[in-house]
Amino acid sequence: MDTFASVRYIVDDVPAASFFYTTHLGFILRSNPAPAFADVTLGPLRLLLSGPQSSGARATPDETAGPGRNRIHLIVDDLDTEIDRLQAAEVPFRSELTTGPGGRQILIADPAGNLVELFQPAT
């Protein structure tokens, strides 16, 4: 299994973004359920290009919209257990639990306010 560092970029036009990264920067297209989402890689970097129809784009609350909507994307095996653990540790949550076509996710914030997405893929 390949190991990637995943970063989600919210984009307005998934096909255009996918074309840009694969054509101009040498990324490899892994999956492309456009127009909602594309998954491109370059070495150990996995770039998740999420359009307005994707669940990733819906997970950002209005008060954090705009610059800074990008976040680290961490895959977890059991999102409910992680939510319980982090709530007990009083980690600040920045969204409600969201379910979309690719899975379930929630946003937390680091001490500086940077967003981290916890994501459990759909089975």
Rank of each mutant, 00 (worst) to 15 (best):
M1W: 14
D2R: 11
T3A: 07
V7T: 08
V7W: 02
R8E: 06
R8M: 13
V11D: 00
D12H: 13
V14M: 03
V14R: 01
P15R: 03
A16W: 03
S18R: 09
F20Y: 09
Y21K: 06
T23D: 14
H24M: 09
G26C: 11
F27V: 12
I28D: 08
R30P: 02
N32P: 02
A36S: 06
A36N: 02
A36V: 04
L42D: 04
L42G: 10
G43R: 14
P44V: 08
R46M: 10
L48W: 05
G51Q: 05
G51Y: 12
P52W: 15
Q53D: 06
G56C: 05
A57S: 11
R58W: 05
D62P: 02
D62L: 07
P67H: 12
G68Y: 06
G68Q: 10
R69H: 14
R71Y: 09
H73W: 12
D78Y: 08
D78N: 12
D80M: 11
I83M: 00
D84S: 13
Q87T: 14
A88F: 02
A89G: 04
P92L: 14
R94L: 14
S95T: 04
L97H: 05
T99Q: 05
P101V: 09
G102M: 15
G103H: 06
G103T: 13
Q105V: 07
I106P: 00
L107T: 01
I108N: 00
I108F: 03
G113I: 07
E117G: 04
F119E: 00
P121A: 05
A122N: 14
T123Y: 10
